[in-house]
């Protein structure tokens, strides 16, 4: 199958300067398992655009590094 990749605006953003090295709290609780740890930086990021904008990731973050925005299509 012919394929292309395209940019997509994802709803959850993680402030990389605040995110704690090696912490996985937000990754652990996401119902859709949409957050992951970047193996290069050891920081969390949204790896798929699958979001119910429910908020446990932000609520659990001990340093307020996680922001849940409304997905672009709904905003």
């Amino acid at each position: 199958m012919a394929q292309a990749t395209h940019r997509i605006d994802v709803p959850v953003s993680v402030d990389q300067s605040k995110c704690i090295d090696g912490c996985t709290l937000c990754v652990d609780v996401c119902p859709l398992d949409s957050l992951a740890i970047d193996p290069e930086t050891n920081k969390a990021y949204m790896h798929v655009d699958e979001c119910w904008y429910c908020g446990p990731c932000a609520a659990r973050c001990p340093v307020d590094a996680v922001t849940v925005n409304i997905p672009y299509l709904l905003r």
Binding site: P31, L32, E50, C51, W52, Y53, C54, P71, L73, L74
Partner: peptide
């Protein structure tokens, strides 16, 4: 109607 697969009324899981 937004077209967003996971923007459902129920938890999309």
């Amino acid at each position: 109607s937004s077209g967003y697969l996971y923007g459902t009324y129920e938890n999309p899981t």
